[in-house]
């Protein structure tokens, strides 16, 4: 392979003294200091800085508006437009979960239900948020578009029990999702 010999740059006497570079550096850092004190740091606007420097003062100001679409917050269960709980307790998410955070207790849909064709629904669906690693594999594995990674990130359980999300909590967090595929509709 051909290679190019690069000449070392010749260092002049002025550069060897190092004083000029030193002073230049001091000027640069001083510029940053002054700009951040008067609140005009570079790219402060893009980073959503509030006050001094580019730092966003977190609890008062939040990043929510800037969150990208692909942001993976905590996982939630959703209901469809028709109000049906979409999970059919196939347990694929439970098996794929690398952190083993998901526990599903499958049950049957009662025969007199409108959706008895679906046959199965979870009796209990628990995600241990202290184990969850927010990898999003449950969402990928789900064949029913039932579990999603939400945009939420504010979880502060006060004890271990509160860290486990049960079915009711998951549906409460997830709510209803529009525009999902409806494959269990009755034949018209």
């Amino acid at each position: 392979m051909a290679f190019k010999t690069i000449k070392r740059p010749k260092i002049s006497i002025g550069e060897r003294f190092y004083l000029k570079a030193l002073l230049g550096g001091l000027v640069i850092t001083m510029k940053h200091l002054v700009l951040s004190i008067i609140g005009k740091s570079r790219s402060k606007k893009e980073l959503g800085g509030s006050g001094i420097g580019v730092t966003m003062q977190y609890p008062e100001y939040r990043w929510d508006k800037h969150l990208p679409e692909y942001y993976r917050g905590y996982p939630v269960l959703v209901k469809g437009e028709d109000g049906r709980e979409r999970c059919v307790s196939c347990q694929l998410c439970e098996f794929i979960c690398p952190a083993r955070a998901i526990t599903i207790k499958p049950g049957e849909v009662p025969a007199d239900s409108q959706w008895n064709k679906v046959e199965k629904a979870p009796v209990e669906f628990e995600i241990d948020m202290l184990r969850c690693i927010y990898c999003g594999m449950c969402q990928e594995a789900c064949p029913e578009q039932a579990i999603f990674m939400s945009q939420g990130y504010l979880l502060t359980p006060t004890d271990k029990k509160a860290g486990v999300h049960n079915k009711a909590k998951l549906y409460e967090l997830g709510g209803t999702k529009q525009g999902l595929v409806n494959k269990w509709n009755a034949y018209k």
Binding site: T29, R42, I52, G53, V54
Partner: peptide, 10 residues
């Protein structure tokens, strides 16, 4: 000062 120089709050 370190944080100001690095555009942080400190």
């Amino acid at each position: 000062v370190a944080s100001f120089i690095q555009d942080r709050v400190g």
